[in-house]
Design a binder for these strands. Structure first.
Lengths: 142, 142
DNA sequence: TATTGTTATACTCTATAACTATA
DNA sequence: TATAGTTATAGAGTATAACAATA
């Protein structure tokens, strides 16, 4: 059970997380890579090839949205697509070397602002964030 | 100074915050109120009337974007606008009773999913999030 | 018939550039 | 001239509905 005041904590946490995420998005570098692109490339980088449906489910977007993202990534040369040998309906998406390179560079750029924010915090404050990291991940993946 | 491994922590924290925020946005109720609307109404609710420019700065959006948001809110009856008496160029935006009511209901709906997530956490995990709250706020407002 | 993915279409949000009104 | 805000226009991202291909 949660304490009576936890409802207010839930609201405040939600707002703080949303606003921080907005700041991160706004403060990203002058690159031309969208969040959707980076999310897909990141998953392919970590988990290897995946079907369009798997990618859509992972990002909680609809299949048409993922089709559009994959098409753009393919036209830019960052992924390749091929029908599955087992099941011709499925489309297997794989990251290219250019995709790897783009993701590395983009992640680096986008972390700059956030890293600067961390540098302005005290040791205790950074420790508090570090302790919250696994909890945030748990919620994000649930 | 930050420890050598903090660069990686920065990346992981950033991704976890962004993905959690995406989940919050996706899991919101069937309401028809955008994040932009709620952010403006929330600020007017807490801080009282404000100019269009102040609202744009607070949300880190451009003046044209804020104009559009304010127009939509006014047409829906959730805010009123009036030129400043001191400076005819400035537009003072005020929340209406309907705006108050809408914001309360919307906040309640959007917090449901997040509150359920909190209920699934251990006491230690909730404490970790609570400790991180002021730090997140500090970053979001910086 | 059910599933996987695509195409067609439209809506929301945001941005840059050009403009109006006021100081 | 400088500032506050609006209008015009365009682009990115996403959604629902209808469709095609495969199982």
């Amino acid at each position: 059970m949660m304490a009576p005041t936890d409802d207010e904590t839930a609201l405040e946490l939600r707002l703080a997380i949303q606003k921080t995420a907005r700041r991160i998005r706004n403060e990203r570098g002058g690159d031309h890579v969208s969040d959707g692109w980076l999310s897909v490339l990141g998953q392919l980088d970590r988990g290897g090839p995946a079907t369009a449906g798997q990618l859509a489910e992972y990002d909680h977007v609809t299949p048409p949205s993922m089709t559009r993202t994959i098409t753009a990534l393919r036209e830019a040369g960052y992924v390749t697509t091929a029908p599955s040998e087992d099941d011709g309906r499925r489309v297997i998406v794989s990251i290219t070397d250019a995709g790897h390179a783009l993701m590395d560079e983009t992640r680096r750029l986008r972390t700059v602002w956030f890293r600067e924010q961390l540098a302005d915090l005290s040791g205790d404050e950074r420790a508090a964030l570090q302790a919250a990291l696994p909890v945030l991940r748990k919620m994000a993946d649930s």
